[in-house]
């Protein structure tokens, strides 16, 4: 029993100490970090670095880019994936299986496999340095996992409900919006959270397609701070906290949904 408690405590400290150091360091000057790397900041709560990073960087712009890319990517992935999932459940079984296999094959191909040809395609289509380009790629590459999760769920919905609505004269679109979507809300919200975290944190596609500061998202901007600030940890960690803040706040309030949603994504992906 004692050993168990001790292990739980050690693991908790392994998570907490680095995070605490990040918060404390973001409130220190660089000089103070060198003289006292792990202690409390001398001036207590000090937001100078936060002010400085907004002055030195187009932080608000990066933040907005991340918000735009994430919101549109999640919305369109969910919309198109749920349409496909609905379509699969309504098709004859062999046609449905073909579509299901076609889309879920995509889960087997890691993003790094297609990055080379995708890059030249984006150049040809003039979609580099464009938020629209990022959104299109995001939606296309996360469709497979979303289709997989949503189809699994929609297949469990009772067929009678759809049949009843056909008798009432509902077309496919009405059946989709009035029956399938409302009943799939639990699965949709879990998938949404999974996609939110994935798109918000994505580094690879911005790294490949964005060179103009005006279109950079937070993870890419953050990565480039490393070149600029080198080992100026106070500034790097200020960036880390700003970039992570929305997810952390959401996690505190929606913890259970995060754990369920992201685990579903992992297990099924």
């Amino acid at each position: 029993m004692l050993f168990r408690r001790f292990s739980l405590l050690v693991y908790a400290l392994l998570i907490l100490i680095p995070l605490l150091v990040v918060v404390l360091t973001s409130m220190k000057t660089l000089r103070e970090t060198f003289s006292n790397p792990l202690g409390l900041p001398a001036d207590g709560i000090n937001i100078d670095n936060y002010v400085a990073i907004f002055q030195e960087q187009t932080m608000a712009g990066y933040f907005m880019n991340s918000v735009i890319v994430t919101l549109f990517s999640v919305t369109f992935t969910l919309l198109f994936a749920s349409m496909i999932a609905f379509g699969i459940t309504r098709l004859s079984s062999w046609l449905g299986n073909i579509m299901f296999t076609l889309f879920t094959l995509g889960m087997m191909v890691p993003a790094q496999v297609i990055m080379v040809p995708l890059y030249s395609l984006m150049l040809d289509l003039n979609l580099t340095n464009s938020l629209v380009g990022l959104i299109l790629v995001n939606v296309s590459t996360t469709l497979p996992i979303a289709v997989f999760i949503l189809t699994g769920f929609m297949k469990t919905l009772p067929k009678e409900l759809f049949e009843a609505s056909t008798i009432d004269g509902a077309g496919n679109w009405q059946m989709f919006t009035k029956v399938a979507i409302p009943l799939s809300l639990p699965s949709l919200s879990a998938t949404a959270i999974f996609l939110f975290v994935m798109h918000w944190n994505d580094l690879l596609y911005p790294l490949l397609f964005i060179t103009d500061n005006a279109y950079k998202t937070l993870p890419l901007a953050l990565l480039e701070f490393q070149g600029q600030y080198s080992t100026n940890y106070p500034m790097l960690f200020t960036g880390v906290i700003i970039a992570s803040a929305p997810m952390v706040v959401a996690y505190v309030f929606l913890q259970r949904f995060f754990v369920a949603g992201m685990t579903a994504g992992a297990v099924k992906g």
């Binding site: 990040v22 953050l222 990565l223 490393q226 960036g239 970039a243 992570s244 952390v248 754990v259």
Partner: peptide, 17 residues
């Protein structure tokens, strides 16, 4: 929930930490 927490961070953040 605490042990799960790092999962929601971006790889770049984890790399810096």
């Amino acid at each position: 929930a605490l042990y799960f927490f790092p999962t929601i961070l971006s790889s770049v953040s984890v790399a810096f930490i």
